[in-house]
């Protein structure tokens, strides 16, 4: 039922920087519009990809099923 705000803000800020700020501050050049296009598509796809992954785990319907040996090993390894 819950999403933590920090990762959402961080990731959105990061990809917002790539996809919105960078294309605006890009220096003039022969390939400016192409670079803008590349940056925007990269940011949108990568941000959405991360978001889907985050949202898929946001409200888990089931939990992972572990083998009891795995549980014992994890208890030992992760404390």
């Amino acid at each position: 039922m819950a999403a933590s705000a920090i990762p959402i803000i961080l990731m959105t800020l990061f990809w917002g920087l790539v996809g919105i700020v960078l294309p605006i501050v890009l220096p003039k050049g022969p390939n400016k519009s192409l670079t803008q296009c590349v940056l925007i598509i990269t940011a949108v796809s990568c941000w959405l990809f991360w978001l889907c992954c985050y949202m898929h785990q946001m409200n888990p319907l089931v939990g992972p099923t572990l083998h009891n040996t795995t549980v014992v090993a994890l208890r030992k390894l992760w404390g």
Binding site: S4, I6, L66, T70
Partner: peptide
């Protein structure tokens, strides 16, 4: 709250 970046590693070892 979910694992912040990517899939939770617990899934990789789950059945």
């Amino acid at each position: 709250y979910p694992y912040p970046f990517g899939l939770d590693p617990m899934w990789q070892i789950s059945n």
